[in-house]
Measured scan of single mutants.
Amino acid sequence: MPGGGPEMDDYMETLKDEEDALWENVECNRHMLSRYINPAKLTPYLRQCKVIDEQDEDEVLNAPMLPSKINRAGRLLDILHTKGQRGYVVFLESLEFYYPELYKLVTGKEPTRRFSTIVVEEGHEGLTHFLMNEVIKLQQQMKAKDLQRCELLARLRQLEDEKKQMTLTRVELLTFQERYYKMKEERDSYNDELVKVKDDNYNLAMRYAQLSEEKNMAVMRSRDLQLEIDQLKHRLNKMEEECKLERNQSLKLKNDIENRPKKEQVLELERENEMLKTKNQELQSIIQAGKRSLPDSDKAILDILEHDRKEALEDRQELVNRIYNLQEEARQAEELRDKYLEEKEDLELKCSTLGKDCEMYKHRMNTVMLQLEEVERERDQAFHSRDEAQTQYSQCLIEKDKYRKQIRELEEKNDEMRIEMVRREACIVNLESKLRRLSKDSNNLDQSLPRNLPVTIISQDFGDASPRTNGQEADDSSTSEESPEDSKYFLPYHPPQRRMNLKGIQLQRAKS
């Protein structure tokens, strides 16, 4: 015994090295194993092979420090690593049964499904019991997946119906949107047309105001020219009257000059006056001389005659003075006559000038009245044309509004008919989907599995289990394997941990 101590140590070291070499393959693929292994699927088989106990299973599945599946799978690998070579062998058998691809990844061999460990530990009855539990578990999982698949199909059909409904609603909204954009385009076109009409109206108003201003300026210029013409006519008439007055005065002077006595007659009258003065002096001298030589009687007679002569001279002087006064009065009367005649001529000139001015103003008033009548006639014609244009424009607008209203009513009726057609199509689609759903539900009910399987069917299934373990590994792997896509769409199922009653199965096998 003492001599065998070193050999035992060498043997233990060799086993430990082999164990480390075995687990080295697992550690190399630890990331892939932790990512894809579900500990809840492996722990029943590991407990059946007595590699882990209930406490280890509870620690792996329910520990609060292991929230994710990767953490739980890593903890399970750590626990199996502590179990040595047996933990490695049982772990590979569980991978061979549940995850053939991972088994091939770790060992590089094809899975054979021999279950040597569980046969050694529990015997064939334990293997049968384990396989029966796994089959029931798989059936329950398949039923749950079928239910989930039916629910998802129903949800899918519902979503398809909602999608069709949303599509129809979208078509309806597109119809309304198209109608909205069309009405918006019509409104924009009408606004552009309105702005264009306003611009045209403004341009016409500006043109009309400009023409009116030009016409008023032309009328004012015409009036100024007419006033200048009238003033020139007035000056012409005044000059004609002055010329006529000057002509009359010149004719009067000419007549006075023609009626003036001649120079010879004046000289002859002056000679006669001198001769008479000479004779008068001679007679006076004779009379003076006679007075001195005459007697007293003759002197008395001469005195009487002288007195008579003096009286006659006085009378004559009075007559001469009277004649002079009369001549002066006649001259003054002639001057007054000439003055009055001049005033008369001036008044006649003024009267004729005023008459011509009156005629001029009368003509001017007639011209202004004619212009006013023409302006009123043009204004009435413009008003009439404007009223006709406004009436025609309003009539066109009324007809346009009428046609637009008819078009809008027809478009609304068309839209309502399209919407009604879309709604009826939606109703038809809904009815078809309901009919299809009812038909599929009836087919699913016919094809669904019963909840409680008979014992004979279970025994028959387990009677055929042994050949399947040898020759149909691919079928078992397809039913027991969970793909990543299934984990996305289906909830994980945790079967209840219970042991099955095998009395009925044993009785059935005894009868057979």
Rank of each mutant, 00 (worst) to 15 (best):
G4E: 13
G5W: 11
P6I: 12
D9I: 09
D10Q: 10
M12P: 11
M12K: 14
E13I: 11
T14F: 04
L15W: 11
L15E: 08
L15P: 09
K16E: 10
K16R: 09
K16I: 14
E18V: 15
E19Y: 13
E19H: 10
D20H: 14
A21T: 10
A21N: 02
N25I: 04
V26G: 01
V26W: 00
E27P: 00
C28E: 11
N29H: 07
N29Q: 08
R30L: 00
R30D: 01
H31F: 04
M32G: 06
M32D: 14
L33P: 02
L33E: 01
S34C: 13
S34W: 02
R35S: 05
Y36C: 14
Y36P: 02
N38A: 07
P39L: 01
P39C: 03
A40W: 03
A40Y: 06
K41F: 05
K41I: 02
L42S: 04
T43N: 06
P44K: 07
P44C: 06
P44Y: 09
R47L: 07
R47G: 08
Q48S: 11
Q48V: 13
D53H: 15
Q55M: 07
D56Q: 07
D56E: 10
D56F: 06
D56R: 06
V60K: 00
N62S: 11
A63S: 12
P64S: 08
P64Q: 03
M65S: 06
M65N: 07
L66M: 03
L66S: 01
S68I: 04
S68F: 04
I70E: 04
N71G: 05
R72C: 02
L76G: 01
L76M: 14
L77C: 01
D78L: 03
I79R: 02
H81W: 04
H81I: 10
T82N: 05
T82D: 08
Q85M: 08
G87W: 00
Y88K: 03
F91E: 03
E93M: 09
L95H: 13
E96M: 09
L102A: 03
Y103A: 05
V106Q: 05
T107R: 00
E110P: 05
E110K: 05
T112W: 01
T112F: 09
T112N: 14
T112C: 14
T112I: 13
F115C: 03
S116I: 10
S116A: 06
I118E: 10
I118F: 00
I118R: 14
E121L: 04
E122L: 05
E125P: 13
E125C: 11
E125W: 14
G126L: 14
L127K: 12
T128I: 15
T128W: 14
T128A: 09
H129Q: 03
F130I: 15
L131K: 15
I136V: 05
L138P: 08
L138T: 11
Q140A: 13
Q140E: 13
Q140M: 09
Q141P: 08
M142F: 14
K143S: 11
K145A: 06
K145H: 09
